[in-house]
Design a protein around this nucleic acid. Structure first.
Lengths: 160, 160
DNA sequence: AATGATGAATGTCAATGATAGTCAAAAAGG
DNA sequence: CCTTTTTGACTATCATTGACATTCATCATT
């Protein structure tokens, strides 16, 4: 029932959990061979499951002795995300919100209830906005970004 | 005589009751095949019989290895507030938000932190929206109302 | 040394297939 | 009639692959 994508995700997560520093270094080609799939499949998994919105940082190097390093973002890295959102041109898709909120929950930044509230404001509430003059998806996604930023600021203030 | 709709509803409900966690995962296409009906029939059953108002949460994923997850959740008797706020023509000022959130806190429906999150989404985040094409105060207040409505829906879900 | 060729990795993107969602119209009940 | 059900055409999303581009280390040549 699981897709290849899901399987690779679980595999990587387990590796990270078993690592001493919540960080692993892999080779894209090798991993693709293990799962007998296209190398770009690995990129897809990384892009969709290990984005910064899900609490991971991915660095890589091409060429000979190339590698991919996947690091779980430590708990004190909330500020970079806030400053990232500080750029008013940023925008977030629904899936970004889902990912980030899940991460915040996992990391203990917010409770399940708070996560539900956040998703209510950023997903359900922005479902049908055509009649308010906010037809474009881009504007909606920007609005989402601003709501998130303000909410994150509240969480940051609380932690301090 | 039972309609197909009813039959599928009973089938799903029985599956949920027999599940350990009041939660099942199905594939829309497979289920439609079992009952030899159009796949969208499943959506109809879910929409009419398994809405949040009936105490169910439905999540899904499209694409390869897609699924539909149906979860039964406890529901509450405070629903009148939802219909009161469900009026889309209603709009709320900042001060309305302030007093309502304070009331929710006093009544123990939400925590201080949750109140901060709500105000962040409905006050701070809606401060400067001119560049998104939402200059009018009326539109802003309507947007505020929708965000509040969705957040209240969440609160109602967890108030037992 | 500096240069350049070569091979070995990773990145990007668009096409394809597999799901699920939406919506309006037809069909069926009451 | 009016409401509910049922269907199908169309849309949206997710997964997977492969062709092609890009980057980097190394080594031979000068």
């Amino acid at each position: 029932m699981y897709s290849l994508c899901d399987t690779i995700e679980k595999y990587i997560i387990r590796m990270i959990e078993n690592s001493p520093n919540q960080m692993i270094v892999i080779q894209r080609g090798k991993l693709a061979d293990e799962f007998d799939c296209a190398p770009s499949q690995i990129n897809y998994v990384l892009a969709t499951r290990f984005s910064v919105f899900r609490g991971f940082i991915v660095e890589s190097r091409r060429g000979g002795s190339g590698y991919v390093r996947i690091k779980k973002v430590p708990i004190d890295r909330l500020e970079p995300i806030v400053s990232y959102l500080g750029d008013y041109s940023r925008y977030l898709k629904e899936s970004d919100v889902q990912s980030l909120v899940s991460w915040l929950e996992r990391e203990g930044f917010i409770t399940i209830r708070e996560g539900l509230l956040m998703k209510a404001a950023m997903i359900q509430a922005l479902d049908k906005l055509e009649d308010l003059g906010l037809s474009g998806g881009v504007e909606r996604n920007k609005l989402r970004s601003r709501i998130l930023r303000e909410m994150l600021l509240q969480i940051l203030d609380w932690v301090k």
